[in-house]
Computed example of a mutant assay.
Amino acid sequence: MSDGAVTVFLVRHGETASHAENRYLGRTDARLTETGQLQAAELAGWSSRARLTAIVSSTLRRARETANPSATLAGLAVRLDERLVELDFGEAEGLTAAEMRAKFPQDRAAFEVDPFGNPLPGGENPVDALDRGRAALDDLVRAQPNGRVLVVTHSTFLRILVCALVGLDPSRYRDALPKVRNVSGAVVRRDAVGRWGLLAWNPPLTRTTDIWA
């Protein structure tokens, strides 16, 4: 593509042990499970034919472990960017939704009404997370004119960022984008005049699937 457009594959990392009970995993530096490693290998099969020009990853271990096999097969180095890490969930770290309702019911109720405007107790303000995400993407676009970039990041961060890019209210990210599959997420493209569009949501990324040429 030579029209100045940049295609970004925003992908959630592979499975961790927290997924089985749907526990909130923010800044805890968890590793992938065996299933997560297999998922990363599937993503690498897709990356080997996707004509990527760069691979960028959150600095957290689960993201790095997801990105590394893709980098190997694509013949690229992984660039780490701490601005792509998951939100800090504060007192909610490691808890399930039910445990939060028992521990801080009013805060959890407010979060469920508007998770963007009412961060979990002690957690990062989503406005700040969105600001760092936008800054990271702006730098990426400047560095990769006509590029095709794999970005390995995290579920909540990814959903907030995608909502903002495509014009959805970020306060609705839990309703508008309720689930991000592991090693999937959003295919977005920024055109030459700076407009972002969503090409796909939660697509399978394996050796035999679309590469959005």
Rank of each mutant, 00 (worst) to 15 (best):
L84E: 01
L84D: 01
V85D: 08
V85T: 06
L87E: 02
D88N: 15
D88A: 11
D88F: 09
D88H: 10
F89H: 12
E91R: 08
A92M: 04
A92L: 08
A92I: 06
E93F: 05
G94Y: 09
L95T: 08
A97L: 11
A97K: 11
A97S: 12
A98D: 13
E99P: 06
M100N: 06
R101S: 13
R101P: 02
A102G: 15
F104Y: 05
F104A: 09
Q106G: 10
D107T: 05
R108T: 15
A109W: 07
A109Q: 08
A109F: 09
A109T: 06
F111I: 09
F111T: 07
F111A: 11
F111D: 09
V113H: 07
V113M: 12
D114S: 07
P115I: 07
F116C: 02
G117P: 10
N118E: 14
N118P: 05
N118Q: 11
P119H: 03
L120I: 11
L120V: 14
L120E: 07
P121I: 12
G123Y: 02
G123V: 06
P126F: 06
P126C: 12
V127R: 15
V127N: 14
V127F: 14
D128E: 10
L130D: 07
R132P: 04
R132A: 14
R134C: 07
R134N: 13
A136S: 08
L137T: 04
L137M: 12
L137R: 07
D138V: 09
D138G: 06
D138M: 06
D139V: 05
D139E: 13
D139A: 15
L140Y: 06
L140D: 03
V141C: 05
V141D: 03
R142C: 00
R142V: 04
R142F: 00
A143N: 02
A143H: 04
Q144A: 02
P145N: 01
N146I: 00
G147I: 00
G147S: 00
R148G: 00
R148T: 00
